[in-house]
Simulated assay, not measured.
Amino acid sequence: MPSAEGLKYKKIWAGDMDTTVQLHRLLLFSLGEGTYAADVSYIREIVQDQQKIPLPNAPDYIPGVFNLRSDVVKVIDIRRIIPLSGEGTKKKIIVFVPENDSSTRFGMVVDEVYGIMEIPSDCVSLLDRTNTGIQNNFMIGFFTFSLTGFLNQSSRKYATGSDEVVWIDFEDMIQTIIDEEKAQNIVFRLTALFNPQYLFSDNWRSIQNK
Rank of each mutant, 00 (worst) to 15 (best):
L151W: 01
G32N: 04
D111N: 06
G161R: 06
V109G: 04
L127G: 01
R205A: 13
Q51N: 03
I178P: 04
T89Q: 12
L23S: 11
V73N: 06
L27A: 12
E171R: 15
F194G: 11
I134M: 01
P98N: 02
K10C: 11
I94Y: 01
K90G: 00
V75N: 03
W204D: 04
E112H: 08
F106K: 08
I82E: 13
I93A: 15
V166A: 11
P56V: 03
K157R: 12
I82S: 08
M17G: 02
L147V: 10
V65H: 03
L68H: 05
S146F: 06
I76V: 09
G34H: 07
I43G: 03
N209E: 15
E99C: 00
Q50C: 07
Q175L: 10
R129Q: 09
Q197P: 02
S70N: 03
I12N: 02
V47H: 03
W13C: 05
V40D: 03
A14M: 11
P54C: 01
G161Y: 12
S102W: 13
G86L: 12
E5R: 12
I207M: 14
D39M: 09
L31M: 10
L126Y: 15
F143K: 14
Q208H: 00
T20N: 10
I207C: 07
D202Q: 14
T19R: 13
L7G: 05
Q51W: 02
D202H: 15
L31P: 07
N57V: 00
R80F: 00
S201G: 04
S103G: 08
I12S: 07
D77T: 02
F29P: 03
I174C: 10
I78T: 08
T19M: 00
G141Q: 06
N152L: 07
R79Y: 09
K11T: 05
V97A: 06
A192C: 15
T160M: 12
G149A: 11
K74Y: 12
F29H: 00
W167P: 03
I82F: 06
M173G: 08
V166M: 13
K52Y: 04
I140Y: 01
D169L: 00
Q175M: 13
Y9R: 12
E112P: 00
M108K: 02
E87P: 01
A38E: 01
G107P: 06
I76D: 01
P98D: 10
E33D: 13
G141W: 05
T35D: 02
L190E: 02
V187A: 03
V95N: 06
D163R: 05
S155Q: 14
S41K: 14
K74V: 09
Q48R: 06
D49V: 04
R25N: 13
Q48E: 13
D179C: 06
Q135R: 10
R25I: 14
Y158I: 01
